[in-house]
Design a protein around this nucleic acid. Sequence first.
RNA 1: GGCCCCAUCGUCUAGUGGCCCAGGAUGUCACCCUUUCAAGGUGAAGACACGGGUUCGAGUCCCGUUGGGGCUACCA
Length: 492
Amino acid sequence: MRVRFAPSPTGPLHIGGLRTALFNWLFARHHGGHFILRLEDTDQRRLVSGSAEHIMSMLRHYGLDYDEGPDTGGTFGPYVQSERRERHFRRAHWLVQQGAAYPCYCSAERLAAVNAEKRSRGQPSGYDRHCRELSQSQRAALEATGPRPVIRFRMPLEGQTSVQDAIRGELHFDNARLQDAVLLKSDGFPTYHLAHLVDDHDMQISHVMRSSEWLPSLPLHWQLWQAFGQERPVYVHLPVLLNPNGKGKLSKRHAGFTQNGKQVLVLAQEFIDAGYLPEAVRNFLTNIGWSMPDEREFFPVEAAIEDFELRRVNPADSVFPVEKLDWLNGMWIRELSLKDLADRVRPLVLEAGLELDDARLRKVIPLMRERMRSLHDFVAMAGFFFRDRIDDPEAEAIIQRRMDAAGTLRALQAARQRLGRHDRVDCAALEAEMRALAQELGIKVGQLFGSLRVAVTGQRVSPPLFETMEILGPETCRERIDRAIVTLQRQA
RNA sequence: GGCCCCAUCGUCUAGUGGCCCAGGAUGUCACCCUUUCAAGGUGAAGACACGGGUUCGAGUCCCGUUGGGGCUACCA
């Protein structure tokens, strides 16, 4: 089994592209086959420099290793389509010799005019096959004076083309509706239709797994294989990813758009930036349009490889279920070792401009692991560990439910006094002491702890209080409680 | 407009004629646990788009309607 992912290097890798790559990769790994990366760069005008490297680095990041590709090599190279253009050129002209294709000299202007005219009469648009039956002499004349021709495929005018899709079965198309598609452009480069077919044959691809947007051109490809007299690979059309509101496919959207005030991520890179683990994204993507036989949704990639089968691919397009990604990311974070999580969080702490105390980071990680859904949650909830000074919390935040400023002040002063006796904080001992204090004061532990929490962390929600205080150390805690006391005194 | 594909809880899905007055997951809500938030546990609400057939029997097969999506380039 040989499959390929064939993106065109015209910009950053889209999440939909990543999903297509993933399914190909899973299929190859399940069958012990080969997964190949081929760059389809035949549209010279749309090339974006650096995107080939970007695509390869994204595949690496998400763990989709390829067995053959532009940078890894392989016995079927080159893996960059533009480097194969002579082969494409020869195959196009071979088709012309066979009578299966013909040169077309029509200008872009004429094509546009024909389309406009057809449309105005309410007819389906398309090429009028003007050059299909040119005589030898007409052709020679145009060859001498005219512009450089394109090569078009000579589609059968009647009958039907019956094609086979691995997950939809047999599909039928009326040939009369089909176009004489361009195979070779006037710049000598092939179009996708010709190039993918020639390359898939040369690279001995057994299964073409691609997005279902390609379904309408399958009959063309079917006919092309026949014209070449070659055995076709199995074609598999994967369902498309839809926008969160179900309107339109996701790939139509560009980076960083928002919907209902929420940021919608569409680029492979954006998921990294948002703090999602590659394991989680991969697991998430696997569950869209495919399901485990036992319906598990949280599983290691090895399990997906083990069970991956085409018959479990759902033909229906699907909305991108983002909330599930958040859940899975949390699950995967909890799956990480403390060291691994620390390694992944460290760059974000630095990036946030915080002071990186590594010993402290390692102490905070176990407190945070079960509280994170995104890697960014660490900085958001535990950032105060890595700041010398926190913003003084408002009195209103320090004072807990059914408490007043005076009562809170008394409580904090008492707590401060007890804390004064320690030169280190032992969280279990401190907790016991504070519980006792709450009882003495006749307030609830939640009220005391709540005030302390806000005083010490500056936040209403935080990791467990006494573990937090132990890590912060008595000096920092006293200092922060003192500031809270001042705030309350001002209030009173 | 034409052609093609698709259609189960809000969303992702299981379901290949009787095991389904439809199961799981997520999200939502409630309760338990609990120093906050999580995590964990328990529970609740929530779907076979509609109409015809076929069949003893249809979520499952066929037809139509509706809805959604894709394609309609010398882009992929």
